[in-house]
Design a binder for these strands. Structure first.
Lengths: 207, 207
DNA sequence: AATTTATTTAATAGACTTATTAAATAGGGT
DNA sequence: ACCCTATTTAATAAGTCTATTAAATAAATT
């Protein structure tokens, strides 16, 4: 049951899957132990508390989720091209981590304590990148290449449209019996449509 | 504690507030009883099970939430004007029921059983309205008044952009200390921006 | 081989859950 | 005053949950 990769790792991984699937309060340490194939006490031996275990997973996931925002490549391609790539990269990251939106809604937004812990962390880390993006965007607006819009609204628009399909996936899978291939196809279409919508919404009005 | 309005109603109302705030599994019948000011057994006397009580509340909320889609006014105003009104009405409904998005994500999307029960119900009820909207939209696209887009994508875009700010509210309230007035102002701005974004995204390309 | 250290388990304390039961209380109607 | 019915409570069964403890096993070190 334990060759070179140890049980600690096994527990962590099983806990991650379960937490992502059901959320914090619907997963018991007994569930985790059962899935990992060990005694329930062992979960506490390695991570002391359930909260501890969760935090560790959540922090990692969340960092990964935000990573995409912390880079805005400064190649010499035009702004809109880079923006388009950014939207696609964000969507692709969500494809690889489909349950992240649930985790965030469930645990970050519903739980005040966890929120406080992370927000400041994030805020400081991403402020600079935000400023640079903001600067570039407003410059493009000045030049008349893009319809006037606040940077925050644009970011919110992108995130919201990218995210929502992942909230709908369980519905599509279980209720309309979409298989993996159909889902994959649907996601690609949706990604394309989001990019299209954003780009169209940014065209200047007089043009 | 019980004049003309009875305790049953009181329990229902308190349960609703608690469920909306914390979700099903984080609220105990003891919590509900405490808030309603009665014995815990009384909750079971009136509603027999916690699940029963929840279903009753959830069904009502969800019906209300969907109601907005079940009408698309057929006045002689132009399509885009009516669409604009629709988006605003949807947003306003969310303002009045801010916690609905949480409830849906938490309980409908995470819970397979509840999902099945509701989906067919909804599907049949709204199919006709969907078809009519679909017909009108595609007609406008044919005429060249609107950029080509699938009806479903458009609806998804609207819902997603309308909803997301309500997921962010707890963050804005607790982390950035927005007061009620600032929140109200922010929501109005956001509503305006969503309408603007959608309308801009629908402009035909060649125009 | 003996001893120390790390890993794992069984058992259980203690708190909290939902739901049920039987008993207490209150308010008409007769 | 008596009875009937609806409302409300206290008590508790039966179960789950997290976390701890002490004991057993395995691995590493000396």
């Amino acid at each position: 049951m334990n060759k070179d990769n140890n049980m600690e790792q096994q527990i962590l991984q099983c806990a991650e899957e379960l937490f992502l699937e059901k959320g914090f309060s619907l997963v018991s340490t007994t569930d985790i132990a059962k899935k990992a194939g060990c005694n329930q006490a062992l979960v506490h031996y390695y991570f002391r508390t359930k909260e501890n275990l969760f935090q560790q997973i959540f922090q990692a996931k969340f960092t990964k989720f935000l990573y995409i925002f912390t880079t805005f490549d400064d190649s010499d391609e035009p702004f809109t091209t880079r923006l388009r790539k950014k939207i696609e990269a964000h969507f692709d990251l969500l494809i690889e981590n489909r349950q992240i939106p649930f985790l965030i809604v469930n645990e970050l937004i519903l739980n005040e304590e966890r929120r406080s812990a992370l927000v400041k962390n994030i805020y400081n880390k991403n402020l600079e990148i935000y400023r640079r993006f903001d600067h570039e965007l407003q410059e493009e607006i000045q030049k008349g290449n893009i319809r006037p819009i606040s940077t925050l609204d644009l970011l919110i628009n992108i995130v919201s449209m990218n995210i929502i399909i992942f909230f709908m996936l369980p519905l599509l899978e279980s209720q309309f019996n979409f298989d993996d291939e159909e889902i994959a196809e649907l996601l690609q279409q949706r990604k394309h449509e989001v990019v299209e919508t954003i780009m169209c919404s940014l065209r200047p009005k007089n043009k």
